[in-house]
């Protein structure tokens, strides 16, 4: 056991602050098991040193890794399903009628993690319109190279496909490959994956019609949140749509967005004149 009480308490407080999840005393073992791979990936011998390192030099990247390792077992496919329902019910029809038939819609999944979000979008689009693969391009980015590679591979474990992926979609869009499931070639062709740090100047991309930027802003301080929203808006079409996480908003952060309620979900659209 390398984890001191002080280190464990620091991790508990961090996780509680960022996710409202309470790690009960006695979960030292879980913290050790989940954080050891992160420590190793940073070249540190144990979790105690990982905690010391992040405490002395805090960074949103390591914070996010720690919180994610302790709060999410597997990412759900239709996690907070409403932003996806909004895509097919409202956003897609409105964009299709506003754009010419030859124009490709551009969708950005800005923190794609292991790929559930971009492939969820791709499946919904392919099911909603037969021409999806030629009419829509999905850009998926993540800070972590490992996540980028996982998304690109499009292979998911049994436990991952069990998390909120409708069985009908599983058998329609995936093929079993040993213990894993491989996403179909047509979906993979719709999704382009690359590394991207939202907290730094962004590469040339877009312009995007729809951006999914969910559960990212919570990890940053106010000035960084503002900078990220500004940079994202610069890559969006003036009539584009932005989806944030259920606990996130532009209100009180950046007043150049208009909040639009769609069903049980909200989207944000660039205000004109800003």
């Amino acid at each position: 056991m390398t984890l001191t009480t002080t280190s464990f308490d620091w991790v508990r407080q961090l996780v509680h602050r960022e996710s409202a999840i309470v790690l009960a005393p006695g979960k030292e073992y879980l913290v050790e098991a989940r954080l050891l791979p992160i420590a190793r990936s940073m070249g540190l011998p144990d979790v105690g040193q990982l905690v010391d390192s992040v405490r002395t030099r805090p960074s949103p990247e390591s914070t996010r890794k720690i919180v994610e390792a302790l709060t999410t077992n597997e990412t759900s496919w239709f996690r907070d399903g409403d932003p996806f329902t909004a895509l097919t019910s409202t956003v897609l029809p409105s964009l299709l009628s506003a754009r010419g038939p030859a124009e490709r819609l551009q969708i950005w999944s800005a923190a794609c993690s292991s790929g559930q979000e971009p492939y969820t979008i791709a499946m919904l689009l392919e099911d909603a319109m037969p021409t999806a693969s030629t009419r829509v391009a999905i850009t998926a980015t993540d800070l972590s190279r490992e996540m980028v590679e996982r998304t690109r591979a499009g292979r998911f474990s049994q436990l991952e496909v069990n998390r909120g992926l409708p069985a009908a979609m599983l058998v329609r869009h995936f093929t079993r490959a040993g213990t894993e499931w491989q996403v179909s070639p047509s979906l993979r062709r719709m999704v382009t994956v690359s590394e991207c740090n939202l907290a730094a100047p962004l590469p040339r991309m877009g312009p995007f019609d729809v951006v999914y930027l969910r559960n990212v802003l919570i990890y940053f301080d106010l000035p960084t949140k503002q900078a990220i929203l500004r940079r994202v808006r610069a890559l969006m079409r003036p009539d584009g749509w932005l989806f944030l996480g259920a606990a996130e908003t532009t209100l009180g952060v950046d007043d150049s967005w208009e909040r639009v309620v769609i069903g049980r979900s909200s989207a944000y659209r660039p205000l004109k004149g800003n």
Binding site: N73, S76, F78, Q158, N162, R163, G164, P166, L170
Partner: peptide
């Protein structure tokens, strides 16, 4: 199973979260 009329399919082993996700769907 889907063709026979099942609505959803959860593969064992599953977590309670997986059941919850499917019920939410």
């Amino acid at each position: 199973a889907l063709a026979a009329g099942a609505h959803e399919y959860v593969i064992k082993p599953f977590t309670a979260d997986a059941l919850r996700d499917k019920l939410a769907l």
